[in-house]
Write a protein that binds this DNA or RNA. Structure first.
Lengths: 215, 215
DNA sequence: GTCTATACTAGGATAGAC
DNA sequence: GTCTATCCTAGTATAGAC
């Protein structure tokens, strides 16, 4: 997708190899879960063997972490940044919600793995180095959620959104959206318009519950 | 909790032993995930060894399945049944939503394991017998979701709910509610009232988005 | 960079004593 | 019913050839 952007970067060769491994890992984890996925499975998706995987990543846990980090990056870049634009809060929020919904579908492997949680699979069994990475990821996620909290707070201040428990509502909102990764599977011949329709339907519902009634 | 109800049943001894193992398994799976949980871990929570666990369950997968089945039973019994009562659809729906939210908190170990999914962990590696059980569980879940679909459809017919894509909205609704198992952790000294407040806040938001505007 | 060994361990499952 | 002892496979990670 953003291949052309990186193509001029120079260090493409190494980065591409690594990215390919990461992509394969995301797909494997999505399908079977963390522990049920073997390094052989990941290599298999690449038409390669373990050696390749271990050349780029020193452990399975590191691979897993990187899938999470990448998905957080996608979210921040795709939806989080909208929070900082200059527009009415409710408009921004609506576009953030729609963008997040679409991200869940278009980047399903990464997003599904991320949604199912880090803590779940690596409780305890981490090295200090990995612990640090884990903390970074949690911070990224918190920062992302905070964007939603901020925009909704602004919407309340602007009078477009009724007063409510912002933190609780953000949890509900993101839960509804993240849940997409649980039920969504791309269908044969599905178009962008199909996905847009699903995202719109959800967005309408979730935004509607926030509006200050003015009908 | 429902100890006294079963106390007169007679076959209590065997059932209780089994239930204790199941409870321990739910807690273990919740904490570490399916694959990262060893049978020794489950036994450890009971202050016992493998032997006890294998006496009641023939495999780890069977244990996992039973956690799912139990959580589905809790949902149907606690929230699903409300769908069949005799009252305006929107009233029933509101109570179903609140009940489901509370179930997520009060039965967290079972519910969290269930939410994180069956397919995820046991893709492929199942015996025919287990495959059958798996299908039963999926059917239970579908039947439960259908209750929500039905009630919302009735609400639309009654004119209390605006016309919308019912299936999509149910996915959003249950996603927001199931997500509770991801962020919720019981806090020291937390009361029923605290949990009720959280459930109410979410319920208000999620029901609000469905209402036909009549302000 | 990528492969083919191979070492090493964790953990599911079973047999049989008590 | 519950335990201990044991078998056995799967799968992470590494070493070293190519």
């Amino acid at each position: 997708m953003d291949r052309s952007a990186r193509a001029e970067a120079g260090e493409d060769d190494k980065a591409d190899g690594r990215a390919a491994v990461l992509e394969a890992a995301a797909r494997a984890f999505m399908q079977d879960g963390y522990a049920a996925t073997s390094i052989d499975d990941v290599a298999g998706l690449l038409g390669a063997t373990k050696g390749r995987v271990y050349y780029y990543y020193r452990s399975k846990a590191d691979l897993f972490f990187d899938v999470h980090r990448e998905s957080m990056r996608q979210n921040m870049e795709g939806a989080g940044r909208i929070a900082l634009e200059d527009a009415p809060a409710l408009d921004r929020l609506e576009r953030m919600v729609r963008a997040h919904a679409l991200l869940m579908m278009t980047h399903l492997p990464f997003q599904r793995v991320s949604v199912l949680g880090v803590e779940m699979h690596l409780a305890g069994s981490t090295t200090p180095r990995q612990r640090k990475t884990l903390n970074e990821i949690v911070e990224l996620r918190d920062a992302y959620e905070q964007r939603f909290v901020d925009v909704i707070s602004q919407g309340i201040a602007e009078g477009a959104i009724r007063p409510l428990d912002v933190k609780m509502v953000v949890r509900g909102l993101l839960g509804a959206l993240n849940w997409i990764t649980v039920w969504y599977r791309p269908r044969e011949g599905e178009t962008d318009a199909d996905r847009a329709r699903m995202a719109d339907e959800l967005t309408t519902y979730l935004i509607n519950g926030l509006r200050r009634d003015e009908a």
